[in-house]
Simulated assay, not measured.
Amino acid sequence: MPQMSPLWWELLFLMFSMLLFMMNIMIYHEPYIKGLNKTQEKTINQMNWMW
């Protein structure tokens, strides 16, 4: 009969894996989000209204 790990170990491992995966997704998309904000700021600063 194979040994079984306790359920809370498995849950801990799954939670850790999910958090690691989500953190990597957020780190991957962070430069894209910052880039959008920078381009919006540039367009606002470059607008010279001539009335």
Rank of each mutant, 00 (worst) to 15 (best):
M23L: 13
L19H: 06
L7K: 07
T39P: 00
I44E: 12
Q46D: 15
Y28C: 04
F16R: 05
L20E: 14
E10F: 05
T43L: 12
H29E: 09
W51F: 09
I44W: 00
L14I: 04
Y28V: 05
L7R: 11
K38C: 01
Y28T: 10
M23R: 07
K42N: 04
E10I: 04
K34L: 14
L12E: 11
K42G: 01
P31L: 02
H29D: 13
N45W: 01
Y28G: 13
E30Q: 10
M22A: 14
F21L: 15
N24V: 03
L14Y: 07
N48T: 04
K42H: 03
L36P: 00
Q40S: 09
N37A: 14
L14S: 13
E41A: 14
I33G: 02
P31S: 03
H29N: 12
M22G: 04
M23K: 04
M18G: 05
N48L: 12
F13L: 06
L11M: 11
I44R: 06
Q46V: 00
I33E: 13
N45H: 10
W9Y: 05
E30C: 07
Q40C: 01
H29Q: 09
Y28L: 12
L7P: 02
Y32W: 07
L14A: 15
E10T: 06
M26H: 07
L20G: 13
G35V: 00
W49L: 10
M23W: 10
L14K: 14
W9M: 10
W9L: 14
L36R: 07
E10D: 11
H29K: 10
S17R: 02
M26P: 00
G35Y: 01
W9K: 13
W8G: 01
W49Q: 10
M26F: 12
K38R: 14
K38T: 02
T39Q: 15
S17M: 06
T39H: 07
N24H: 02
L20V: 08
W9I: 08
W49M: 06
W51G: 09
W8D: 13
I27L: 15
E41D: 15
N45G: 12
F21T: 15
K42A: 12
Y32A: 14
F13G: 07
N48Q: 08
N24R: 06
I27P: 00
W9T: 10
N45S: 14
M15N: 03
Q46R: 06
I27Y: 07
M18K: 01
N24E: 08
N48S: 06
Y32L: 05
K38M: 12
M26D: 05
I44M: 06
L11S: 09
S17D: 06
M47E: 06
F16N: 11
K42W: 04
W8A: 03
F16Q: 10
N48K: 14
L11H: 02
E10Y: 04
K38N: 08
M18L: 15
E41Q: 13
F21N: 11
P31Y: 01
K38P: 00
Y28F: 11
L19C: 14
M23C: 07
M15A: 15
K34W: 03
Q46M: 13
N24Y: 02
E30D: 08
G35Q: 02
L11G: 04
F21H: 03
